[in-house]
């Protein structure tokens, strides 16, 4: 089970067990072994981006969204952060438990359609399998997507002094889901902000062009996971100023109550960008113009020190920001 959490254990499982037998096609720019958000295959003059993701979530309906919106947004965002903001096609494959209520299926389908419209994307083919009661827990949706990236923005391209931008406040998705699933009442209105980001990122690319080096959606492993991954793949350090990272007071409060760090809480609909210094301000302004980027902020920069690691400047000192552990172990004595 530890392997599902998305951290080091998952990466290891994928790298050593699942990806090793395949190898990358000779001309892939980013292949499976790069373990990026999507694969990039050159076709003629164009960079074809391909990605797939299976979505399971408990509960399937939650404040701010549902599994349908999540399944579309997740794949659209994986394409977008590779540079393919123009989504050419999506596929959808559902595996459903036999007694799954039709009304719920309809709600999910409607939600997928609405999210596709928002992302200017369409599901072009699909598949449905029904399994027996108890053989699966409710519903699993796999979506795959194809897009074209005029400029590829892989995880591995951050350089020292690149400015790190964040498109939105963090933690809402993960903490609201947790509260909903476990029935924990914080006395505040927490809701997921799951959303497709390709429209927002398209605007950023229009302004920033090739000066946008890296984009990544900070999903299961939270902002801490995303930053660590790009620092490691880029071979640079990343320095983050804690006070600049937008966190709503509700998320902050809930995190404090549970002893959870918002940096380590899952998001769906928040992206990290690394932008060359000369374009950083323009790109940030452009992000902020867009309703999905109102809270965008410059949160730090690439540094030529602490290679492969993320340094968090807390205002009274610095510490390493670690990615979430599968089994968090207390360290204070």
């Amino acid at each position: 089970l530890e392997h599902g959490a998305g951290g080091e254990a998952t990466r290891k499982l994928v790298a050593e067990t699942l990806a090793s037998g395949f190898g990358d096609p000779e001309d892939a720019i980013v292949g499976l072994t790069g373990m990026d958000d999507g694969a990039v295959i050159p076709v003629g003059e164009e960079n074809l981006v391909l990605t797939t993701d299976s979505h399971v979530i408990d509960p399937p309906f939650f404040p701010g969204g549902d599994i349908g919106r999540l399944a579309v947004s997740g794949t659209v965002n994986d394409l977008a952060v590779m540079g393919a903001t123009d989504v050419r096609a999506l596929t959808s494959a559902m595996v459903i438990e036999a007694n799954y209520p039709v009304a719920k299926l309809e709600r999910i389908a409607d939600s997928m359609a609405a999210t596709c419209e928002e992302a200017n994307a369409a599901v072009v083919t699909g598949d449905t399998k029904v399994m027996g009661n108890g053989e699966i827990d409710g519903i699993v949706i796999n979506t795959a997507g194809v897009g074209v990236a005029p400029h590829v923005t892989p995880d591995s391209a951050v350089e020292p002094n690149d400015v790190i931008l964040l498109t939105d406040s963090i933690g809402e998705h993960g903490i609201s889901l947790l509260a909903e699933r476990e029935g924990i009442e914080f006395g505040s209105d927490l809701a997921s902000d799951v959303k497709p980001l390709n429209d927002l990122l398209a605007r950023a690319l229009e302004v920033g062009g090739k000066n946008i080096k890296t984009m990544k959606d900070a999903t299961r492993m939270g902002l801490a996971g995303a930053l660590n991954e790009i620092a490691e793949k880029s071979g640079v350090g990343i320095e983050i100023r804690e006070e600049r990272v937008p966190v709503t007071s509700d998320v902050k409060g809930a995190g404090e109550m549970l002893g959870l760090d918002p940096f380590q809480i899952a998001n769906e609909g928040v992206a990290v960008l690394a932008v060359a210094p000369k374009s950083a301000e323009n790109v940030l302004d452009e992000l902020r113009e867009h309703p999905k980027g109102e809270n965008a902020a410059a949160i730090g920069k690439g540094i030529d020190d602490h290679h492969g690691r993320v340094v968090l400047d807390t205002g009274i000192g610095s510490r390493y920001l670690r990615e979430p552990a599968s089994e968090p172990a207390p360290r204070i004595c």
Partner: peptide, 16 residues
């Protein structure tokens, strides 16, 4: 905090 802690114990969230 007290109420959240009790719910946290019941649901075993971040409770090593």
């Amino acid at each position: 905090e007290r109420n959240v802690v009790i719910q946290q114990l019941e649901s075993d969230v971040n409770t090593p």
